[in-house]
Computed example of a mutant assay.
Amino acid sequence: MSGGSGAGFSPADGPDEAHTRPAGLSDETVEALGKLSEALEVVEQARGFLYGFHRLTGKADLALGEAVDLLRAAGHSALADSLETSMVGRNAIQGRWTFQIVEDYDDNYYTPFKDAEKEARDLLAGGRRHLFEAEMKEDRRTHGAPHHEARPAE
């Protein structure tokens, strides 16, 4: 797992320009941008969980509607009516269905976070993404070894 030069190493074996540190960018800045990128990745994952919550809650409500119809067809009208009026279409939180929760998260947290991360990259690194990870890859891969290429073949 040595990051040292292996047989066949050439300058073209390194990262592309989009993943190369601009001249004068300090190690500390690259590390800070890497941590900011890591934080954004966590926000992206949280957003994915939120969309999963949205989809599962909607799926549950639709299945509940089907259960109400089946209960009614089975002769349990009072129970079906009670479930229909108390649970079908119910808000997930006060005043909101899950699509409203997702929209609020997107508008008030996700989008501003994503914009702030991009602004920091634009200001400090010419918009380059994943510099910390690209440098980690260069350090950890075995140069010249199969399946350790810096980038896809052209």
Rank of each mutant, 00 (worst) to 15 (best):
residue 17 E to C: 01
residue 5 S to I: 12
residue 113 F to D: 13
residue 87 M to W: 00
residue 14 G to M: 08
residue 65 G to F: 10
residue 67 A to Y: 01
residue 96 R to M: 13
residue 84 E to V: 11
residue 25 L to H: 10
residue 125 A to S: 13
residue 121 R to G: 05
residue 46 A to R: 06
residue 11 P to L: 13
residue 103 E to R: 13
residue 105 Y to F: 13
residue 130 H to F: 04
residue 87 M to Q: 12
residue 85 T to R: 11
residue 30 V to T: 02
residue 123 L to K: 15
residue 42 V to I: 12
residue 54 H to G: 06
residue 42 V to W: 01
residue 108 N to V: 06
residue 49 F to E: 09
residue 115 D to S: 03
residue 14 G to Y: 00
residue 116 A to S: 10
residue 41 E to N: 13
residue 120 A to H: 00
residue 37 S to W: 06
residue 120 A to C: 14
residue 33 L to W: 07
residue 99 F to H: 04
residue 105 Y to P: 00
residue 85 T to Y: 01
residue 34 G to I: 00
residue 135 E to Q: 15
residue 55 R to A: 03
residue 71 L to Y: 03
residue 90 R to W: 01
residue 29 T to I: 15
residue 87 M to S: 11
residue 54 H to L: 12
residue 108 N to E: 12
residue 119 E to N: 11
residue 21 R to N: 03
residue 82 S to N: 02
residue 55 R to D: 09
residue 65 G to H: 09
residue 70 L to E: 03
residue 28 E to N: 12
residue 84 E to I: 10
residue 91 N to G: 07
residue 111 T to K: 14
residue 50 L to Y: 00
residue 19 H to L: 09
residue 4 G to S: 13
residue 56 L to A: 05
residue 92 A to W: 00
residue 93 I to Y: 02
residue 89 G to A: 13
residue 72 R to T: 13
residue 96 R to G: 10
residue 56 L to F: 01
residue 16 D to H: 03
residue 75 G to H: 00
residue 25 L to G: 00
residue 110 Y to W: 11
residue 95 G to R: 01
residue 64 L to Q: 00
residue 46 A to K: 03
residue 100 Q to Y: 10
residue 19 H to A: 09
residue 68 V to I: 14
residue 125 A to M: 09
residue 92 A to E: 03
residue 4 G to P: 02
residue 95 G to C: 02
residue 50 L to G: 02
residue 48 G to H: 01
residue 10 S to D: 07
residue 100 Q to A: 15
residue 92 A to G: 05
residue 16 D to E: 06
residue 19 H to Y: 05
residue 46 A to H: 04
residue 47 R to G: 06
residue 26 S to K: 05
residue 125 A to H: 09
residue 53 F to W: 14
residue 60 A to V: 03
residue 32 A to P: 05
residue 8 G to P: 14
residue 13 D to C: 12
residue 81 D to N: 10
residue 136 M to A: 11
residue 33 L to E: 01
residue 15 P to V: 11
residue 114 K to Y: 11
residue 136 M to D: 03
residue 35 K to H: 05
residue 11 P to N: 14
residue 134 A to P: 12
residue 133 E to R: 09
residue 80 A to F: 01
residue 36 L to T: 12
residue 107 D to C: 15
residue 43 V to F: 00
residue 89 G to R: 05
residue 65 G to A: 13
residue 10 S to Y: 00
residue 106 D to C: 04
residue 65 G to I: 15
residue 26 S to F: 05
residue 104 D to F: 09
residue 35 K to P: 04
residue 94 Q to S: 03
residue 125 A to K: 09
residue 60 A to D: 01
residue 53 F to E: 08
residue 51 Y to M: 08
residue 79 L to D: 03
residue 8 G to L: 14
residue 90 R to T: 11
residue 66 E to V: 15
residue 90 R to A: 15
